[in-house]
């Protein structure tokens, strides 16, 4: 498995990276950790003339937590998300989810930005970021803008990001309360058969706030407002969970693949979601 040839660029800044990408247009791709793109290049399913490596862009490696707001540079790796104690305190669901991505070696290289920008329906971070109501910072030749994670994904590998834009940072509020990331997969290194991110706040024994998203059950991540609404105001009892699962079930659209047929995936989605809700509620 040998990729076809390309020219390599390692710009020192976002601005320089954007300049290269803008000049080269379709022929250029930005690379972060590369652990999605490089296998595709080796299988010759991805061809490009110019590879723009962001590893020297220091500003993309920053992770800060201030005033209850988490800001993560796109080049922060999954490994860094796992080992960052402040992040684990502020938003523990991120560590819980990141630990379920790929394997140790891939997590050292794989970045949050790459995981989000690629648009692969199997990636875990997009659903999680929708659950957290994160906002993505995009920079391009026209300047910078922000887009909500919940508005970013259009179809498999299709996002709101323009070709010449770079996803540079992710911002979301620290989440206090119950949380759970549940993922079923065939083995370490596999994508999810189904995964669920759930955040629940409780007040007086009732769900006061909830957010629910699932992964790899559609060509985009599925954040379900209806599923969350089904929980809010309830004691998270069986009827509420059933309603949440029913709501989510109406929004997912799993496809058959080697992980199994649609009927199975739908059932597993319900089971995984129930478990995530139960665990998040127990922690709320």
């Amino acid at each position: 498995m040998i990729p076809s040839a390309f020219e390599y660029h390692r710009p020192p800044s976002v601005a320089e990276a954007i300049r290269i990408v803008s000049e080269r247009g379709d022929d250029a791709r930005v690379i972060a950790g590369g652990h999605s793109l490089i296998p595709m290049m080796k299988l010759r399913m991805a061809h490009l003339e110019h590879l723009v490596d962001l590893q020297d862009v220091a500003e993309l490696r920053e992770l800060s937590i201030a005033d209850g707001i988490v800001r993560i540079g796109a080049m922060v790796t999954q490994h860094e998300l796992i080992t960052h104690e402040g992040l684990a305190q502020a938003v523990p669901i991120v560590r819980e989810a990141a630990l379920l991505i790929a394997d140790p070696q891939v997590r050292y290289m794989g970045t949050i930005g790459g995981n989000l920008a690629n648009g692969d329906p199997g990636n875990d971070m997009p659903g999680l970021m929708q659950c957290l109501d994160a906002r993505f910072g995009l920079e391009g030749p026209e300047g910078s803008r922000e887009v909500a994670a919940r508005d970013f994904y259009e179809a498999a590998y299709m996002t709101d990001r323009a070709d010449e834009e770079i996803l540079t940072r992710i911002t979301f509020a620290a989440s206090t309360g119950g949380y759970a990331y549940e993922k079923q997969k065939r083995k370490i290194g596999d994508y999810a058969t189904a995964a669920a991110a759930v955040l629940i706040n409780a007040q007086d024994g009732r769900v006061s706030r909830a957010s629910v998203a699932m992964t790899n059950l559609s060509d985009v991540p599925v954040w379900s407002e209806a599923a969350a609404d089904a929980l809010i105001g309830t004691a998270c009892d069986a009827a509420a969970c059933d309603a949440a699962v029913a709501a989510m079930s109406a929004e997912i659209d799993p496809q058959e693949d080697s992980r199994g047929p649609i009927e199975f995936k739908r059932h597993v989605a319900g089971t995984i979601l129930r478990r995530a809700i139960a665990r998040a509620w127990a922690r709320a």
């Binding site: 390599y8 590369g34 490089i38 590879l51 590893q55 891939v106």
Partner: peptide, 10 residues
């Protein structure tokens, strides 16, 4: 790292 998935240039 898995060195089959790192370019020399990187």
């Amino acid at each position: 790292v898995k060195s089959c998935t790192v370019f020399a240039a990187q």
